[in-house]
Simulated scan of single mutants.
Amino acid sequence: MTDDAMGNFPVPELSDLPEDIKERIESETERAGFTPNVFSAFAYKPSHFRAFFEYHDAIVDESPLEREEIEMLIVTVSGVNDCLYCVVAHGALLRVYADAPKLAEQLATNHRSADLSEPHRAMLDFAVTLTETPGKVDERDLERLREAGFSTEEIWDIGSVVALFNLSNRMATLADIRPNEEFYTLGR
């Protein structure tokens, strides 16, 4: 864990963290080959770390959505929210899962300019609406997703990803979480 993982709060020492959090960070570090800065940053508040990553893991591991679709949602929402950390980190994951080197940048700047299927366009249009004007989301928005072929469970999960990453984007901005250098070249 590096001190430059975030700029606005202190990064805890790995040795000072509760055992379960140390194990999770060590596991992620081994898997990725580096410690993603979001783990170092969220470790500042162990109870928040546990809750955030438990919800994240439930969304990723227990969804009928493809991982590529989850990353498409994250990158699009993070672009709308001007969240550098999530655009860079999840853009790298999107490049890997979608095997599409240009897609992340297209989604982060304007998903409407990307070469997308109609269902994915509907999914990302909804994600932007839920992000920018959540009070205007109504049954018609859900019906558009159904018409695009999404099941009730998939619609719930689309909303869950969008909601979690609106929170994540705001925390990354508050904490000034910085992208790891490794993310910039991953999947290129």
Score class of each variant (00 low, 15 high):
N169A: 00
R146I: 06
L17E: 04
K136R: 12
R121W: 10
V161P: 06
R67G: 14
E71F: 07
A148C: 06
F39L: 11
A163H: 08
L167E: 03
T2F: 11
M6Y: 13
V87T: 14
A43N: 02
D20G: 03
R50T: 14
W156I: 12
R95Q: 05
H111T: 00
E153D: 13
T76F: 05
A114M: 08
E54D: 15
F9Y: 15
L17R: 01
I59K: 03
L65C: 09
C86Y: 07
N37Q: 04
S160R: 09
L124Y: 04
A104D: 08
I155F: 00
G79W: 08
R95L: 04
A104V: 08
D99C: 00
L116P: 03
S27V: 01
G7V: 09
V96A: 11
H48N: 13
R188A: 13
V128A: 01
D138G: 13
M72E: 10
Y55H: 12
R178C: 03
N81G: 11
L93C: 02
E154H: 00
T129P: 07
Y55G: 13
L174K: 11
L14N: 05
S78H: 07
T131D: 06
R50P: 05
A172L: 10
S117F: 12
G135V: 07
G33K: 05
R121A: 14
K136D: 15
E19H: 14
L164D: 01
E154C: 01
S63C: 03
S63D: 04
L73E: 06
E154N: 01
H56M: 13
V96S: 07
A98M: 05
E68H: 03
D157L: 05
R121V: 08
F49K: 00
A89I: 10
A148D: 07
N37L: 09
F150P: 05
D176A: 13
P119R: 07
T2D: 15
R188M: 12
L167S: 01
F39P: 02
A5G: 10
G91C: 08
T133H: 12
E30L: 13
E71D: 14
L103S: 01
A175M: 14
Y55N: 14
I158G: 01
V128Y: 02
V88N: 06
L167Q: 03
E54K: 14
E71A: 07
P134V: 07
A122M: 06
